[in-house]
Computed example of a mutant assay.
Amino acid sequence: MKIIKQLFWIFLFSLLGEGVSILISNFVAIPGSVIGMILLFMALHFDWIKLSQVDEVGTWLTDNMAILFVPAGVGLMTNFDLLANVWLQLLIIMVVTVSIMMWFVGTIVQKVMSKNGQKLNKTRIERTDSNA
């Protein structure tokens, strides 16, 4: 019964995500599964539901994630004749976008770390001044 309740929560947020995706489809195309994960994250973060309510099923799903990629892999193999004509363009796009994303994330992380480091140093200086 516990696993059925955990599946219920995961499927509920997936359904909510699909509903929101349909509602906003005229404005922006975001997959319902992504919206559902964001909604589940927010519910967990704000303690609307407890981690123990989805822990076992969520762990099982992430442990067996490779199974979920089989249909996509089969789809690529069945449409290989279409991809064979544009493989070089796809490869270039992948390399360029991954490089840009790595640069972007690295820059953001460095800025956040430097701001946190400045705050940490400032806090240490204030503490040593007040103790003297």
Score class of each variant (00 low, 15 high):
residue 82 L to I: 09
residue 112 V to L: 13
residue 125 I to K: 13
residue 96 V to E: 04
residue 85 N to L: 05
residue 123 T to I: 14
residue 52 S to G: 08
residue 87 W to I: 03
residue 88 L to R: 04
residue 97 T to R: 00
residue 59 T to F: 02
residue 24 I to S: 12
residue 119 K to F: 14
residue 113 M to G: 05
residue 112 V to R: 09
residue 91 L to A: 06
residue 107 T to K: 07
residue 109 V to I: 13
residue 44 L to W: 10
residue 132 A to E: 12
residue 84 A to Y: 04
residue 122 K to H: 12
residue 96 V to C: 01
residue 68 L to M: 12
residue 9 W to E: 11
residue 8 F to W: 15
residue 10 I to N: 06
residue 91 L to D: 01
residue 43 A to S: 15
residue 45 H to N: 10
residue 67 I to A: 10
residue 89 Q to Y: 01
residue 109 V to S: 05
residue 32 G to Y: 06
residue 33 S to G: 15
residue 100 I to E: 01
residue 28 V to H: 10
residue 95 V to H: 00
residue 110 Q to F: 11
residue 35 I to E: 03
residue 21 S to T: 13
residue 89 Q to R: 06
residue 37 M to P: 03
residue 131 N to G: 08
residue 79 N to K: 04
residue 62 T to E: 00
residue 12 L to V: 13
residue 71 P to V: 08
residue 77 M to N: 07
residue 131 N to P: 00
residue 79 N to I: 05
residue 15 L to A: 12
residue 131 N to Y: 07
residue 79 N to M: 00
residue 76 L to W: 07
residue 58 G to P: 01
residue 56 E to R: 07
residue 110 Q to D: 12
residue 106 G to C: 01
residue 65 M to Q: 02
residue 29 A to T: 09
residue 61 L to Y: 00
residue 36 G to F: 00
residue 87 W to G: 02
residue 116 N to K: 14
residue 131 N to I: 07
residue 83 L to Y: 08
residue 39 L to C: 11
residue 37 M to K: 11
residue 92 I to G: 01
residue 93 I to A: 04
residue 88 L to M: 03
residue 15 L to H: 15
residue 105 V to S: 06
residue 49 I to W: 00
residue 73 G to T: 04
residue 17 G to V: 03
residue 56 E to T: 09
residue 63 D to E: 08
residue 25 S to Y: 09
residue 5 K to F: 12
residue 54 V to A: 05
residue 5 K to H: 13
residue 125 I to R: 14
residue 39 L to K: 08
residue 3 I to H: 13
residue 16 L to Y: 08
residue 65 M to V: 06
residue 131 N to V: 08
residue 38 I to V: 14
residue 86 V to D: 05
residue 118 Q to M: 11
residue 3 I to T: 15
residue 75 G to A: 09
residue 28 V to T: 13
residue 111 K to W: 10
residue 49 I to G: 05
residue 56 E to H: 07
residue 84 A to P: 00
residue 132 A to V: 06
residue 48 W to S: 10
residue 45 H to D: 13
residue 27 F to A: 15
residue 9 W to D: 05
residue 87 W to R: 04
residue 93 I to Q: 02
residue 10 I to K: 07
residue 54 V to M: 02
residue 104 F to I: 01
residue 8 F to A: 13
residue 122 K to E: 11
residue 31 P to A: 15
residue 16 L to Q: 10
residue 99 S to H: 02
residue 34 V to F: 15
residue 23 L to D: 08
residue 4 I to W: 12
residue 73 G to M: 09
residue 109 V to G: 05
residue 62 T to H: 02
residue 1 M to C: 11
residue 26 N to L: 11
residue 17 G to F: 05
residue 67 I to Y: 11
residue 109 V to Q: 10
residue 123 T to M: 12
residue 62 T to D: 01
residue 67 I to Q: 05
residue 71 P to I: 08
residue 64 N to I: 03
residue 12 L to Y: 14
residue 31 P to M: 11
residue 95 V to F: 01
residue 69 F to D: 02
residue 93 I to V: 07
residue 111 K to C: 10
residue 15 L to D: 14
residue 99 S to Y: 00
residue 129 D to L: 14
residue 69 F to C: 05
residue 19 G to F: 06
residue 90 L to I: 04
residue 122 K to N: 12
residue 68 L to P: 02
residue 119 K to P: 06
residue 63 D to W: 00
residue 5 K to A: 11
residue 33 S to P: 08
residue 6 Q to T: 14
residue 55 D to Q: 15
residue 64 N to E: 00
residue 93 I to N: 02
residue 97 T to F: 03
residue 114 S to H: 09
residue 10 I to Q: 06
residue 56 E to N: 09
